[in-house]
């Protein structure tokens, strides 16, 4: 009986020891990680528009059925062109809003006349699927005022972004939660 009791005591002692070791280890690791972590607690996924090559993977690789990536428009960079190469097919029939002239596969760009000869282009985000066709057209020929960004309201904040894996130019990065967007006109090219 006494031997049994000793056995139990020993087991208890070993168990307690292990627990203490475990708890101390976990606490130490936590301290280490907490000390290591960067200033910003939280990271979000975002597209660096200057690295983006508008390949179209954003539309096809997001875990969401309708991608969390949408096109944004830096109005201050826009040329307000009549012939917008982000809006019109390369050889558009005429420069009107007719569907046969539009580049966007979902018709998500609104073109409104302002005054001769300026037209304003705005993105209808619920329709935009983030395919980047307009971005490609605008960047190749125009001022590059159209660019892709991840809509943080819709992004699932996956631990590993599926589009980032597919991105050919490593344009999708973790950004601090305090700076969820990388706008083109503010962060933009040389002044």
């Amino acid at each position: 009986m006494a031997e049994n009791q000793r056995k139990i005591d020993r087991r208890k002692f070993v168990g307690d020891g292990l627990r203490i070791v475990g708890a101390v280890g976990i606490a130490g690791a936590t301290g280490f990680w907490a000390g290591r972590r960067a200033e910003d607690d939280d990271n979000l996924w975002q597209i660096d528009p200057h690295q983006c090559v508008a390949c179209g993977n954003c539309a096809t690789h997001c875990v969401l059925d309708k991608s969390a990536v949408v096109c944004k428009h830096a109005y201050a960079m826009c040329g307000y062109c009549n012939l917008c190469t982000g809006y019109f097919e390369p050889d558009a029939n005429e420069l009107t809003t007719g569907a046969e002239n539009q580049l966007c596969p979902t018709g998500a760009i609104r073109r409104t006349f302002i005054e001769d000869p300026y037209y304003e282009y705005a993105i209808d985000e619920p329709l935009c699927i983030g395919c980047g066709k307009c971005v490609k057209g605008c960047t190749a020929f125009g001022n590059g005022s159209l660019y892709l960004q991840i809509d943080q309201d819709r992004c699932m904040h996956c631990n590993e972004c599926a589009i980032a894996i597919a991105c050919p130019s490593e344009a999708i990065k973790r950004v601090p939660a305090g700076k969820p967007y990388l706008p083109k006109d503010q962060n933009g090219g040389p002044a």
């Binding site: 983006c52 960079m77 960047t139 190749a140 001022n143 933009g188 090219g189 040389p190």
Partner: peptide
């Protein structure tokens, strides 16, 4: 594409 982004 990428080039003009900086060129603009």
């Amino acid at each position: 594409l990428a080039g003009t982004a900086y060129g603009v």
